[in-house]
Amino acid sequence: MDVLYFKLELPLQSTEQVLGVQLILTFSYQLHRMSTFEMQSMAFLQSSFAVPGSQLHVNGDLRLQQKQPLSYRGLDVRYNVSVINGTSPFAHDYDLTHIVAAYQERNVTTVLSDPNPIWLVGRAAEAPFVIDAVIRYPVEVISYQPGFWEMIKFAWIQYVSILLIFLWVFERIKIFVFQNQVVTSIPVAVPQGEIRKEHLS
């Protein structure tokens, strides 16, 4: 399993304290088998505590969430745009509430599952605040709409498999019926025609 080790140190002044963290990590997500799909995704982490902290440790899985199956045809790049519009001159495009809401409107997203945040206290006066994250990329089950020829291929394999089993069972039944005389049979005498011989005179 692939793993991302992320560490961020934030320099702080001696009078500054950290009571909470809101963190967005962006990813380039690509699929190249069965369905060709590319998108820019994110993992959002939010933690807040009553006492000032020195470190935040996170350990979770980046999971794929689908609201509809992917397409099998062509390259799907409808979500291959930045999660945060860095070229926008409007302040609301950088608002965290707007970013998360727009991201959730997508049909395909990623989410940080079971982050299990651990908040450590006791920061020294000149020490930075540390965010330490371990993010795993588990095996995913992808839902997609298969094409016509792919459906025919798998349907043909299933048809042949069932046909072979049926022929084998039918042959066994036929052998059993004839060997054990399960079906009552009555012999019928077939009349033989008269045998004539022609003599040449």
Rank of each mutant, 00 (worst) to 15 (best):
Q145M: 07
D93S: 10
T36Q: 12
A133E: 00
F129G: 03
Q65D: 02
Y29N: 06
P89M: 13
Q66P: 01
M39S: 09
E140V: 13
G20A: 09
Y79N: 11
G53E: 00
P52K: 04
A133R: 00
R78P: 01
N59A: 11
L64A: 10
Y144V: 11
E140Q: 15
S113L: 03
Q66I: 06
S47A: 12
E126A: 08
Y72E: 12
F49G: 07
T87V: 07
A124P: 01
P69D: 06
S28K: 14
N107R: 14
G122I: 09
V77L: 14
P115M: 02
Q30I: 07
N107S: 14
E126C: 04
N116W: 06
Q145R: 11
P69V: 13
D76E: 14
S47E: 11
Q104A: 12
I131K: 02
S54V: 05
G74K: 09
P115I: 01
I24K: 08
K153R: 13
I84D: 04
V108Y: 01
V21W: 05
Q68R: 14
D76Q: 14
P89I: 14
L31S: 10
V121M: 10
L64Q: 05
H57N: 14
G60W: 04
G74E: 05
T87N: 15
R123V: 07
A43K: 01
F37Q: 00
F148K: 11
L25S: 03
L31A: 08
P117A: 13
